[in-house]
Amino acid sequence: MSVFSRFGDWVREGQIWGSVFRHGVPRDRRTRAMAVLSNVFLHLHPVAIRKSGIRLSFTWCMGGLTFFLFLVEVVTGVLLMFYYRPTVEYAYFDIQGLRAHVTLGLLREMHRWGAHAMVIAIWLHMLRVFLTGSYKPPREFNWVVGVILLVLTLLLSFTGYLLPWDQLAMWAIAVGSNMARATPVLGHEGPLAQLVQIGGVPLVHAGDDARFGLLAGTFVGPNALLRFYVLHCIFIPLVVGVLIAVHFWRIRKDGGISGPL
């Protein structure tokens, strides 16, 4: 026996290792089952799983990759938050700084490309789930959760689009948020909004309509930047996190990865 494997055994038999991993080396059925059962992260999975369900050509691994890309976005995003300041004075120059002289400024590239990849991955995941009919009973509710997660993913990407505060960002958000002013009843240029009035005084106007609520102003300005920043970094990720937990839990409760009945 070599020195290294003896050292390995010594570590694995010691008290520190044993305090973390309460099972032996996963070499037989029992310890392998224990490896999954006694690990908070791995126990998202069942211990055993249908063979055809984990075929790569069946699942395309796209749901898992969407989740992984979400984690990549969280990690890179948190690191970017140490540097970036969401104010009109600093935002653009902080992004420039990330590109020009910040160590690991490359994280911004990973964050942006990861976001694009996540959008594509979640669409592919939806396509796979649809083509295999995996939304059918008993998985109807989980499909609905997935649809909400899809919308939130697009919103995450959209709110993040504004943060670099360059021309691309501002005008993409201007185009997008302009729609909100046409919301029926709630937008000041929306249908029927004129009818909401008291004594000839319109209640829905540019200063209080749906677009105002989205941008915290009548144009894409400093308040919109702050609002999108908070939505992007705190609010939507929290909701997504909760829904991902529900999504995964329901996969287990609804019988695991789908297969022919």
Partner: peptide, 23 residues
């Protein structure tokens, strides 16, 4: 079907966790 054999089960460790790791 190619998905048939719903009783054939494999252990998640190592078959699935390694696929996930590689992905």
């Amino acid at each position: 079907l190619m998905e048939a054999g719903s009783d054939d089960k494999v252990l998640v460790w190592p078959d699935l966790v390694y696929t996930e790791l590689i992905a």
